[in-house]
């Protein structure tokens, strides 16, 4: 049975669900951040598969812009995590559940 576009749909869906599970399961803020990157990559894979299905260039350019936004997001997010580590000496998100500290 040859590989068709539905397989890529299932694969990216599985990767996205694994990212959701990791976000819900872990307490380390950096691991949660990495799971968000995993979900972004699952969406990128799906967009490239759609671009192949419909022979369309625009989807691949959207992947390019998603990578741009992800790079900017990682820079700001890691700065926030480093700042939080400097304040409370932990990356446990359960410490952040109250706003005053």
């Amino acid at each position: 049975m040859p590989v068709n576009s539905t397989y890529y749909l299932f694969l990216s869906l599985l990767l996205f669900s694994i990212g959701i599970m990791g976000t819900l399961m872990r307490r380390n803020a950096i691991i949660i951040f990495m799971c968000i990157e995993l979900m972004l990559n699952a969406v990128n894979l799906l967009l490239v598969a759609f671009s192949k299905m419909y022979a369309d260039v625009d989807a691949q350019l959207f992947v390019f812009f998603i990578m741009v936004v992800a790079a900017a997001e990682v820079a700001v997010g890691l700065a926030i995590i480093v700042m939080m580590y400097r304040k409370v000496h932990s990356v446990d998100i359960n410490i952040l559940n109250r706003l005053k500290h």
Partner: peptide, 12 residues
């Protein structure tokens, strides 16, 4: 399903 390896090859 759409056969994915039959599509155009120079798009990327």
């Amino acid at each position: 399903p759409v056969a994915i390896d039959k599509a155009s090859i120079d798009i990327g």
